[in-house]
Deep mutational scan, measured.
Amino acid sequence: KYSDMIVAAIQAEKNRAGSSRQSIQKYIKSHYKVGENADSQIKLSIKRLVTTGVLKQTKGVGASGSFRLA
């Protein structure tokens, strides 16, 4: 599940300011076997996790910027 992968990526990075979408994508692609549409799936999952309150956006708008666990 992409949401689990995103949470794992943010936990692994341990950046106080949060993790960027690009760094999350890079982590997921190197640690998991994902399909061609992974980028758009990650983007959608990040937006969903922010609206449900699992992630907090520290910089930027939408799916860009930095995110950390709430």
Score class of each variant (00 low, 15 high):
M5P: 01
G18P: 03
S23P: 13
T52E: 13
G62K: 06
T52W: 07
K26N: 13
Q25Y: 11
A38S: 06
Y2E: 00
I10S: 06
K56P: 00
G53Y: 02
D39I: 08
Q25C: 15
E13R: 05
G62V: 04
S45F: 09
G35I: 04
K43C: 13
L69I: 08
K47R: 09
A70T: 08
V7S: 02
K29M: 09
K56G: 03
L55H: 01
T52P: 01
T58I: 13
K29W: 05
F67C: 03
G65T: 14
K33R: 10
T51P: 00
V7I: 14
K14N: 14
K47S: 09
G35A: 07
G62T: 07
Q11E: 09
T51D: 12
Q25K: 07
Q25L: 15
K29S: 05
N37I: 05
A8R: 07
V54W: 04
A9Y: 03
I28R: 00
L44K: 14
Q25E: 13
Y2Q: 00
S20Q: 04
R16S: 14
A17V: 08
Q22C: 14
K59A: 09
V54D: 15
D39C: 14
V7T: 04
S66V: 14
I42A: 00
V61W: 11
S45K: 05
Y32Q: 01
I24H: 01
L55V: 05
V34C: 07
R68W: 10
R48K: 11
L55T: 06
V54M: 05
Q11L: 14
R21C: 15
K59I: 08
G65H: 13
E13D: 12
T58S: 09
Q41N: 07
I24F: 03
K33F: 07
S64G: 13
K33A: 11
A70Q: 07
S23H: 05
K14H: 11
V61G: 12
K56W: 11
S20N: 06
S40W: 14
R48S: 08
N37E: 13
S66C: 15
Y27C: 02
K47N: 09
A70G: 06
A38N: 03
N15G: 09
S64T: 11
L44I: 11
L49Q: 01
G60D: 05
M5K: 03
S45N: 14
I24C: 04
K43G: 10
S45I: 12
S3C: 14
S3P: 15
S40M: 14
N37R: 08
R16W: 12
Q57I: 12
Y27A: 00
G18H: 05
H31Q: 03
S66G: 12
K29R: 08
V7L: 12
L49D: 01
